[in-house]
Structures are given as structure tokens and as C-alpha cells.
């Protein structure tokens, strides 16, 4: 059982992906199947970039055991008023500066769903958003 935590700064695109990159290195060392590594880090990266793009700051908590990886991202930010709407492909409120960085197509949340085995999103407007995902290692 391993536990990791990372802090994420909102708005700072130069650091976006640092946590995902660390997790990728750890999973490689643990000899996890590359296809599963890709699923996990793509999902985490999308969620990490969402904190950078849409929230003020956040923390990432990762738990790895022999059968699964659980990731929880807790942010302080504007929250999501309508999660069902936000989950739809193409829905985005990204700012022009986020779009300049190559994001803001409204593809992230659907892609997180596609790349995880369990996904739970909870949010409170003007407080923040929590994204929890689980990926099983042996399948």
C-alpha cells in the first residue's frame, strides 16, 4: 500500500502535469502494464489540468495497492453547477488563455470517464470540486 499527495496551483500551466508525470514514473517502476499506465495518467492529467484551468488550487491524493489505484482530487474553486452538462462532450467554459495552451475543447471529463473504471464527481458552487477515480490493475 502506497500513498502520495501533490499540491496543484490554479492558473500555473508551466507546472500542470507534474503530479501525473510523477505517478507515471512510479507506476513504471512498479511494472504496471503500459496500457493501464496510460489510462491512469491520461485520466489524472485531464483532472490535474482541470484544476489548473478552472480552479484556484487543489490537492491530489493517490492510493496504490496490489489490485487498484484510487485517485482523489480536491479543489477550491468555482465548482460545477451542472455536472451532467459539464460531462457532455464539447461543453467548456475555458478562458481564451486556457485555449491558447491547447485545452478547452470540453473533452476532459468524458475522457476521464473513458479512462477510469469508477468515477465520482461532487461539487459545490463557489466552494470547489472533488473528483474521485478508481482504476483496477489486473484485467
Amino acid at each position: 500500500m502506497m500513498h502520495f499527495e501533490y499540491h496543484v496551483e490554479g492558473g500555473n500551466f508551466t507546472k500542470a502535469g507534474a503530479a501525473s508525470s510523477q505517478l507515471k514514473k512510479i507506476l513504471k517502476q512498479l511494472n504496471v502494464d503500459p496500457k493501464i499506465i496510460k489510462r491512469i495518467v491520461v485520466a489524472l492529467y485531464e483532472a490535474e489540468v482541470n484544476i489548473v484551468a478552472h480552479a484556484f488550487e487543489g490537492d491530489i491524493f493517490i492510493d496504490i495497492d496490489t489490485e487498484k489505484i484510487g485517485i482523489k482530487l480536491v479543489d477550491q474553486g468555482p465548482g460545477i453547477a451542472d455536472i451532467e452538462l459539464a460531462m457532455q462532450k464539447g461543453y467548456s467554459t475555458a478562458s481564451p488563455s486556457v485555449r491558447e495552451m491547447g485545452f478547452g475543447a470540453g473533452m476532459g471529463l468524458p475522457n476521464i470517464k473513458n479512462n477510469s473504471d469508477e468515477l465520482k464527481i461532487t461539487s459545490q458552487v463557489n466552494i470547489g470540486t472533488t473528483v474521485e477515480l478508481v482504476t483496477y490493475l489486473n484485467q
Binding site: F13, T14, A16, G17, S20, S21, K24, P34, K38, V41, V42, Y45, V49, M101, G102, F103
Partner: peptide, 15 residues
């Protein structure tokens, strides 16, 4: 045509 750090990060995550 996007040349910034996120191009490299995205590629890293996507193998």
C-alpha cells in the same frame, strides 16, 4: 502547431 510545455506533457502522458 502548438509549441509549449503542455505539448510535451501531453505527449508524455499519451506515450
Amino acid at each position: 502547431g502548438l509549441a509549449n510545455l503542455q505539448t510535451i506533457r501531453t505527449s508524455e502522458m499519451s506515450d
